[in-house]
Amino acid sequence: MMPVLSLELILYTTALGLISIGLAGVVLSRHLFRMVLALVIAEAGANLMLVLAGYRWDAVAPILTTLGEHPPMVDPVPQAMVLTAIVIGVGIQALAVSILIRIRQRYGTLDRSQVAERMDAEIADSAGIPRDVSQESPLGERPLPSLPDSTVEIRGGHS
């Protein structure tokens, strides 16, 4: 009984590890292509988790061979859903890659902060307003200028 329990433990650890590695990659990676790869890994971990939900250690594959008495089977419903999820995942991946190609054509780079910077500048430029929020420089002068007197009531009076 003990090795069976640790078998499922290994599989759950793998699934959770894949999901966490993928999410960490999506959050931490600086390159957009690496972000897509991390998304693929997280999706693979989610698929493993779903198949694991219908897994029984003493069951056989859900294929009906004889019409008589059959041994217990693995639950085939999560497997069918995962089958769909794999194909949808490839579709999502192709969409992300095409968006990456468009970003590369328009901004000439795939670095995350540079793309955000240029996108921000382009939006401000097309709207005809100055960019007051930047990713790198702080907002306004330091020390901050005092707020106008009309907002004293909102801020709770003079302190």
């Binding site: 790869l37 594959a61 089958l83 490839v90």
Partner: peptide, 23 residues
């Protein structure tokens, strides 16, 4: 090994083959 041969076939063909091709 988890008794899901259909998912394994799809994962090997689509996940490992087509996805790497696209990337």
């Amino acid at each position: 090994l988890m008794r899901a041969p259909d998912v394994a076939m799809t994962e090997a063909a689509v996940g490992a083959g087509l996805s790497s091709l696209i990337l």
